[in-house]
């Protein structure tokens, strides 16, 4: 009896967890499915791309520049021990394109836009705007979530590309202009070592991240407890869950793509 009671709590947790997983899966498939069913909501897609993508550019540029700069600094220090500072360009480019670009760009977007997505949807729920959509015979998933998911799929690869380019530029500034690495070596090694799979892998990661951010943040907002505290808790929860998922998926994808 006691042993059973001990199992009840973790058992409940597992059942709840599986249930959430299932519901969020249905939520995602429905939202994507509605993207292919007319009438199309073309009006809100550019708005969402602007919100998730365009307005994240400045933060992505700043973080990209400093990431490239610090990589260059650290890389130069390490490589100079082996007298291989000519490899700096390829070291910076590979780390950014394969790992740091997709992951850091996604984490920045999560903090900037992801939390806002959860809060927006949660507030629409509290103020009955979601019920109002239902009553006006407008599918709330299709109206609210579908454009966000497609905007994420479009924005993240572009933001990641910007991060990569600015990061490589920042690395160039420190490595070549400040530390005096040969310019030809910096770019030459980079072109020789970066392969198609590296770029392809980074692209796949950025797509997956775009999906995770918009999916998880929308779902958590949509299922938030309909009170002020409920939405506040959901917002924090969304940022933490999304960030952890981004890092876990990054590992999984890396192990597949290697």
């Amino acid at each position: 009896m006691n042993a059973l009671a001990l199992l009840a709590v973790p058992g409940r947790r597992v059942i709840d967890g599986v249930r959430v997983l299932g519901r969020s899966g249905i939520f995602l498939s429905a939202s994507i499915f509605y993207g292919f069913v007319p009438p199309f909501k073309l009006r809100s897609l550019p708005q969402q791309i602007d919100f998730i993508g365009t307005r994240s550019i400045s933060i992505v540029v700043v973080t990209g520049a400093f990431t490239g700069m610090v990589l260059s600094l650290q890389g130069y220090y390490t490589l100079s021990k082996f007298g291989a500072t000519g490899m700096l360009g390829s070291a910076v480019a590979l780390s950014i394109i394969r790992e740091l670009g997709p992951v850091l760009a996604a984490l920045m977007v999560t903090g900037r836009a992801g939390s806002a997505i959860t809060a927006e949807i949660g507030i629409m729920k509290i103020t009955e705007q979601i019920n109002a959509l239902e009553m006006m015979a407008v599918n709330p998933l299709k109206h609210i979530v579908t454009p966000k998911i497609f905007a994420g799929l479009i924005s993240l690869p572009l933001l990641t590309t910007i991060f990569d380019l600015v990061g490589i530029g920042g690395g160039y500034l420190i490595g070549v202009k400040l530390l005096g690495v040969n310019e030809g070596a910096y770019f030459g090694e980079m072109v020789r070592s970066v392969e198609f799979v590296d770029i392809y892998g980074g692209f796949v990661k950025s797509l997956v991240n775009g999906l995770i951010i918009t999916w998880v943040c929308s779902f958590i907002g949509y299922t938030a407890v309909a009170t002020t505290e409920g939405v506040a808790r959901a917002t924090t929860n969304a940022v933490v869950t999304t960030s952890v998922l981004i890092l876990i998926m990054d590992y999984i994808l890396t192990s597949f793509l290697l």
Partner: peptide, 23 residues
């Protein structure tokens, strides 16, 4: 079904307690 229900919803209007206008 949802689609059928939506046809009926077009014949209904609802004023919500919190007005539920889109911000």
């Amino acid at each position: 079904s949802r689609a059928e229900l939506y046809e009926y919803r077009k014949k209904m209007g609802m004023l919500f307690q919190a007005s539920a206008l889109f911000n």
